[in-house]
């Protein structure tokens, strides 16, 4: 177990270096003068030259690469073209906002999908199961921005119950969390259901029934505990997709998160911010993946006790 943790943590190092390398490559992949991109389109000549000097854009590639790597490793991701603030300062608070949204959405999705998935598997092939299946199918076919617009129209405009955008009170959380969570819930419900149907067909379930265990115990202890192995992985993937979906959700609800920051920076050609948000998103995904692996190892006794 400890070897697994150390191994996975070590995996993060080359991954992080690869990502920084990619961010560096962005300077030269994007058409245009990298110094101008960093300074902003309307920056005065002196600023552009200063940046060219600092990053060594007039030097050979490996020296530029070395300088950039050194800067990033010191926590310097550059300065925003517009606010002129260090990128790290504007990115960090956004990360927290995105984390709140993604975490709550995922929590919503997990609770809903576990409940619906188990109930669906319990009533396999009966009307209740079919209703759940159809609803979740519709859910996975409805993109977040469609659900979001419908929710805004219905709850904010038509009923006037909930605010349209921002995140200044708990009421602002409801629509974004449910919009983003509902899509994930639909995806996960289907998967939880199929994991549970699978688990309920196993021999040890017959053993549990033969013991005289009541159906609720059979489903929620014997089957669910086994189905948890694949479900944990699915939830991990789900968390990744929720973070991905947060980009769109944040844009719909004007949520001051990392995703909206990234999209806006791309639209306004604010390269340092784009690089910063890509960097942090990537690190978050790798971290989430690591945590999922560890949780998986912890849930499976075959890994934990060997």
């Amino acid at each position: 177990m400890i070897r697994l943790i150390v191994g996975r943590l070590l995996f993060m190092v080359p991954a992080a270096l690869l990502i920084i390398t990619f961010l560096f490559a962005l300077f030269h992949l994007i058409p245009g003068d990298p110094a101008v991109m960093l300074a902003g389109d309307n920056a005065p000549r002196s600023v552009v030259d200063g940046i060219r000097e600092a990053y060594g854009f007039d030097q050979p590639l490996h020296i530029q690469y070395g300088r950039y790597m050194a800067k990033v490793l010191q926590g310097d991701l550059g300065i925003s073209n517009y606010t002129r603030d260090p990128v790290v300062n504007s990115v960090i608070p956004r990360i927290i906002n995105t984390a709140q949204l993604a975490f709550l959405s995922m929590l919503f999705a997990m609770v809903v999908s576990l409940l619906l998935g188990c109930v669906s598997a319990m009533y396999w092939n009966r009307p209740l199961d079919k209703i759940v299946t159809i609803v979740s199918l519709l859910g996975i076919c409805t993109p977040v921005f469609v659900t979001g617009l419908l929710a805004i129209y219905f709850f904010s405009i038509y009923l006037d119950w909930l605010p349209i955008s921002g995140m200044s009170s708990w009421r602002h959380f409801i629509l974004p969390v449910i919009t983003l969570g509902a899509f994930q819930a639909a995806v996960l419900t289907r998967m939880v259901r199929s994991c549970m149907v699978d688990a309920l067909g196993k021999d040890y379930i017959t053993t549990a029934r033969a013991k005289g265990a009541p159906e609720l115990l059979v489903v929620f202890k014997h089957a669910l505990r086994n189905a948890l192995l694949p479900i944990v992985t699915l939830f991990g993937l789900g968390l990744g997709h929720t973070l991905g979906g947060s980009v769109v959700t944040e844009t719909i609800f004007n949520w001051p998160g990392l995703g909206r920051l990234m999209v806006n920076s791309i639209l306004t050609r604010d390269l340092p911010i784009t690089q910063g948000s890509i960097f942090f998103f990537a690190m978050i995904f790798i971290l989430v993946n690591l945590i999922v692996d560890l949780v998986y190892a912890w849930v499976d006794p075959r890994i934990r006790y060997d």
């Binding site: 196993k202 021999d203 040890y204 017959t206 053993t207 549990a208 029934r209 033969a210 013991k211 005289g212 265990a213 014997h222 505990r225 086994n226 192995l229 499976d300 006794p301 075959r302």
Partner: peptide, 19 residues
């Protein structure tokens, strides 16, 4: 079940709950 009538199965590999 399990009290007055109990049952054992063919596949001991899969009949016990692995977790």
């Amino acid at each position: 079940r399990g009290n007055e009538i109990a049952m054992i199965f063919q596949e001991p590999m899969t009949s016990l709950n692995p977790v």
